[in-house]
Amino acid sequence: MRPGTGVPSGLTNQRSNVNRLTAENVTLAYDQRVIAERLSVEIPDNSFTVIVGPNACGKSTLLRALSRMLKPADGRVLLDGAVIQSMPAKQVARTLGLLPQSSIAPDGITVGDLVGRGRYPHQGLLRQWSAEDERVVQESMAQTGVAELAERYVDELSGGQRQRVWIAMALAQQTPLLLLDEPTTYLDIQHQIDVLDLCAELHEEQGRTLVAVLHDLNHAARYATHLIALRDGEIIAEGAPGDIVTADLVERVFGLRCQVIDDPETGTPLVVPAARRARGAGPAPARAAATKVS
């Protein structure tokens, strides 16, 4: 079983007791549509935090706010004690990396070039490319297992390889905090596990703080050290998966009746949806939610 939250290993915590990335009473909205109101979240330093919840619960929106893509309508997001919007863009980019859901590989770009672009926040007009950049790019490609693809075109790669390349680009940014928005979407099961293993490695071996939005509750329970369960823009529960994932919680968050058993491989909670007959006359929304969680 994985260690719980607040493991003080790896990177040094700049100010003890206060986590580096927090949201205080944020109201998140797109135009007039309010997704979450007065939401407060702390990302424990050195954790692998995973945000879960049904579709449209605001998990990606929360991640966008934490990564300053979305300006809160009210409240504030703090990075190292400063309001994230007020910080110089490149300074944020050296501290906090993001792997967004949508990214475009430019036509005819090679893997090496794409990963190299992750060095942008460390460069300036006068300092465009250094031996250090080269070293970090090689290292990032080696860590994600794409070093041998360096000269290949990104368009030619498979979905799983491409996701590794984008992760390598985010790694080349060398940020202690890394946010990933549904990094396993559109991947086969073996590539999903592959990407999650890579994330766990980055967290455990390099002490990076990871925050990911995941669809699959079982993946979340297996890999997260800290789980945040969100529904309708509200945090229903947070903590170590082993402490909070219960049949009751899954029913409250996803509207799905289920059993929670021990994962025979890792001992983490494993959610087994109740058989169709057992759920039988369940309410319609529960059934809709059940089909989407997978």
Binding site: G97, P100, G118
Partner: peptide, 11 residues
Amino acid sequence: EMGDDVSYALG
């Protein structure tokens, strides 16, 4: 070129 999100993330 890589999309608004990626470029924001890169500063």
